[in-house]
Nucleic acid binder design. Sequence first.
DNA 1: TCTTGACATAGAGCTTACTCTACATTGTAT
DNA 2: ATACAATGTAGAGTAAGCTCTATGTCAAGA
Lengths: 126, 126
Amino acid sequence: MIFLEYSIGEFSKLTRLGIHTLRYYEHENLITPGRNSSNRRCYTDKDLAWIDFIKRLKDTGMPIKEIQHYAELRANGEATLSARMEMLISHRKALNEQITQLKEHMGKLDEKIEFYQRKIDNIARK
Amino acid sequence: MIFLEYSIGEFSKLTRLGIHTLRYYEHENLITPGRNSSNRRCYTDKDLAWIDFIKRLKDTGMPIKEIQHYAELRANGEATLSARMEMLISHRKALNEQITQLKEHMGKLDEKIEFYQRKIDNIARK
DNA sequence: TCTTGACATAGAGCTTACTCTACATTGTAT
DNA sequence: ATACAATGTAGAGTAAGCTCTATGTCAAGA
């Protein structure tokens, strides 16, 4: 098994996150890459999977502060497994509500669009 | 038919938007309530429906700038009906994609939760 | 050796969408 | 008449999440 390591530049391309953003995430303790002998960051494939998960949490509306908390638990190993799972379950609930809400908005939007369509048709028929 | 008018305080309660927010929205030309003889804002039921729609657009991720554009069209009357409809159709598409994306995230989140569950069970069985 | 480019840190600046402050004016109850 | 609560304007401040600048280090190619 080979462990690949990436410089911040490579990792930036892989994750499509800017270098500045990666350093910002590190500053916020979301991710803690290793360092080589010259103090350069060394990201691994594990970091890559982790960043993908962070993105998922972000895209589903979790604020950085909360991801930070999750990251902290993660850094503390197996003892925090159930705490992390609880966080995810609670987030799952929020996400479910979010989707329900958006679907409702979609329905109303469709009504509005139909309404417009009818109005435009009426004007055209004049 | 009676037209009710509301002061900013009343309207704030009806919409559950802060007074400051309502003034900010006016400043950004999202809404343009009338004024009475003493220069106080007079909101109507039409404004109420409009705010509800603004909220819907916001909650589905439309930025203020774009809502501003929509409001501008709206202020220009019937001539802009189809332009407005096009905006809504395009927004509908974005919303649809957003929902699809969130559902995908939900699936992955479920996988992760199951993974955690299995891990925790394994540890418990030891 | 010299230069160039990627990387390092610390901290400033930006964008969005509010939210609040300071201060003046007006409507209403006592 | 007077107090006080609601409203008005202008502009400052806040929070989140980046994004950029200034300055310095270091390894590798010409």
